[in-house]
Structures are given as structure tokens and as C-alpha cells.
Amino acid sequence: MYEPTSPQPQISVPPALAPLLDHNFGPEWTSGLPALTGLHLRRWNLTPTGAPMHGMVALVVPVRRADGSPAVLKMQPVTEETRGEPAALRAWAGDGAVRLLDHAPATGALLLEALDPARTLENEPLDRALTVIGGLLARLTRHRAPEGTRRLGTITRTMVRRCAALAPHLRDPRDRTRLAALASHAREMASEPGDRLLHWDLHYANVLAPLPGTRPEPWVAIDPQPLAGHPGYELLPALHDRWNEAVATGDPLRETRRRFDLLTETAGIDRDRARAWTRVRVLQECVWAIEDGGTALPDVPVAVADALRDRPSRRAKDAPAAPLPSRTVDEGDDHRV
């Protein structure tokens, strides 16, 4: 058993992270996180070099290793979504993804390569950001998923089974019809899920720049929630996020098709299959929205599905405009990507 050998400063859970952890994993996890973080600081002989950061579930502490090199300590619970992250990072071995330096399987703690948290794709020009994500998808999905990775086919079949119980919660019969159509489509897709190593959560904030002089490439993916499946399942975050910019064009559905074409062309993904798997991903968003108490389907994912539904492969400039859905698009939808 490891015995701590040197004192470390107490790490506090950021106020914005604490209620998220309480809600998802219970107050006991939240209250024990500072001590657990201190244990790993001592275990790996790390010195904190800045204030802790966080995402939705992870506490991230910038640190300096014993040899003076920078790194980050990532503390997160071991869940179905996070359990596969170390194996995926090892499989990628830095090929488009952050490098894994060490891992504590019992606690889920990860020691990772340090990147620049101030530079993400959120503030890059949109077409540049889309091109970067398409390029990263091509690199990440050329790797086959390691044994034991969650399977997209299993997840899809589970979603379909849940829909029957969720449909009555929708107020509008048209939404119930649409949910049934998405579920029927997903049931058909589940038989050919693919075996590529997917990131699953490749949105603009999950792509960071490396520290100067550490890598030749300008952008690196972080925070995967790995799946084994088809690369087309990866596109929805980049289509869904920065939606205000799609609305600002005056025709967000046409803009969605343009984004889709740029992503699939850059990533080298078959457009028809990508369109089909994006609709399955939309179903996942709908299931989550209803399970969170929603009585209507989420507008932005539904708008993405409308933009891509039953359209032949072609450049977006040739595609006719399509009307917006009847409900107002809400930038605040909880899409979890």
C-alpha cells in the first residue's frame, strides 16, 4: 500500500463543480475528493502550479512533475462513460489525442500531458474549427477500439428499448411520431455499428492547443468517452454547438448541411452513413431530454435531423433551404455533448 511521504497543499473543489458532483455521484464523493487528490499528488510526486479547473465531472489540477515537466492531474469517478478513457488514450498514443502519462485504475485518476487550457476551438473561425475536428476524426477513428470498449450497437439497442416507455411523456403527438421514426431508424442501424475507436464528445471546447514546443500539430483532443462504432456517430457535437452562428446565417438548416459536408469531406466519412448515424445520435439526445423531465423533443438536435433527413449527398450550396422547426431553437438545450 502506498504511504504518503511529503505534505501537499489542500486542494479545494471549485464551487461550480461541487453541485454537479453532488447530483451525479453523491456528496460523499465530493467531500472526499480533496483528500483523494492529495493522495495522488503525493503518489506521483506532483506539485500544483495553478488553480484547479473542471469540466462536468472531472477536477483537473495543473502540476509539475519531479523532473520539472508540466502535466495535469485529472480526478474523476470511475463510471461507464469514463472507464474506457485510459485504454483509449493508450491506443491513440498521442495520435490526435492528449497523451496518458500514468493511471490509477482503482480511483480513476489520470496523469496527462499538459496542454494550453486557454486555447480551444470555441473561439477559432468556424470553418477552421470544423476542418480541425474533421482532421482529428480521421486520425482518431483509424484506430480500432480496444477490447472491452463500450459498443455502439449495444447502446443503440438500449436507446430503442427505452423509447417505448418515454413516448407518452411527450405532449405533442407529432413529437411522439418523430420519436418513433427515429427509434425505428436506430433499430435498423444497430446491426452494423462499426468497430472504430470513437471519442464521442468531440465538441469545440474539447480540442486544445499544445504547449509551445511540445508538439508539431496545432490541436489535440481531450476528454474522450470512448465507444466502438462508426465514425458518423461523432458529428453531432460539431453540428449542434455554436448554434447561434448557424442561426445568424438566416438559414440554420442550410448551414447545418454546409457544416456536415465540410466535416465529412475532411474526415473522409461516407456521407450517407454519416447522415444515418447522426440521426441515431439525435435519438440519444431526445431520450436524455425526456428522461430529464422534458415534454417536447429538444429543438437543436431535431433541427439537425431535419437538415440531414432523406437528402442525397451533395454540396450544401446546391441544397434548397428548409424551414425551421415550429418551436423556437434554444441555445440552452442540455445536449450533453
Rank of each mutant, 00 (worst) to 15 (best):
A181V: 03
R215Y: 07
V282A: 10
G55S: 05
H23I: 10
C163I: 02
A91E: 03
L198M: 09
E124T: 00
C163G: 00
P212A: 15
G153Q: 04
G38H: 09
A138E: 10
V247I: 12
R275A: 15
R176E: 12
D241V: 06
P9F: 11
L263H: 00
E188C: 03
T264V: 12
A267E: 07
R327D: 11
R119T: 04
R144T: 06
A205P: 03
L21G: 11
L208V: 00
V329M: 13
A221G: 04
R314M: 07
P216F: 15
N206K: 03
L89V: 14
E147W: 10
P212K: 15
G294L: 09
D195P: 00
R43T: 07
P62Q: 03
A303C: 14
M56N: 12
L182Y: 03
H185C: 00
L263A: 12
R162Q: 08
R150Q: 03
L208W: 02
G108S: 14
I11W: 02
T156F: 02
R273E: 02
V287Q: 08
M189R: 10
L39E: 06
P70E: 11
A104G: 01
E192Q: 15
R187E: 15
R144K: 13
D261T: 12
R259I: 10
D22W: 13
R314G: 06
R196P: 00
D175Y: 01
P86M: 12
G68P: 01
P212D: 08
A114R: 06
L121W: 14
P117V: 08
E245I: 04
V98Y: 10
L262G: 00
T149M: 01
A296W: 07
N244P: 02
P125D: 12
E285P: 01
K74H: 05
L100W: 02
P62N: 09
P146K: 11
A181Y: 01
G32S: 13
S313A: 13
V302L: 06
T131E: 08
D318R: 15
R174Y: 08
K317M: 05
L170I: 04
H203P: 04
H185T: 10
E285S: 09
M1S: 11
L46A: 07
A35R: 01
